[in-house]
Amino acid sequence: MVTRRQFGLWAAAAMVVAPTAAHAGKKAGRKATLGHLALTGTVGETTDTTLAIDIQAVNSGSAGLMVELHAASAVLTFGEQEAPIALMWMNDEYPLSRRIVTPSFVDIPAGPPMLAGRFNLEVADGFKDKSDGLLKIVLAVVSQDGETVEVALEPISIAKTSKENS
């Protein structure tokens, strides 16, 4: 089902193909594509039932990038056992929130790493007490041209110490 949230994607084409002349001239010769984007995840704040993964982005191109980051999939395992994940969402786009929070494009300048998003998981109570956890996350990245690619992050270790430190 199409929802009004997709306004941005329709607009994307119109906006990208018709930059102002002044803007286009200034940008000549500078380039950044999804190929210049590297994403990594680190354990952020946790509660008894939620786990936040901070997504760091590095843009190695020569111009700023505009991307949407979406939670595509996540698998959390402790040893051989897979832990159930009730919900996952990016930033404050909590799926059960009352107010519509539209997906946002994020501006990533060329240069040092920046915190580009926060991937949130709602997990079973008690996960904090387990050790040797491994989290595999796939993000859907929407480019400024409206193209969507899936990016698998390096698996993230959910060690008991990292949970206790956060």
């Binding site: 803007h23 901070d54 997504i55 111009a63 700023g64 990038l65 505009m66 930033n91 946002s104 494009f105 994020v106 501006d107 990533i108 300048p109 060329a110 240069g111 040092p112 920046m114 915190l115 580009a116 998003g117 926060r118």
Partner: peptide, 20 residues
């Protein structure tokens, strides 16, 4: 503002993030 962010504004807002 978004255009300025894409150009990089680390000196004006070193802790800027769209998350957190």
């Amino acid at each position: 503002t978004r255009e300025a962010l894409r150009a990089g504004c680390w000196e004006e807002a070193p802790s800027w993030s769209p998350a957190g």
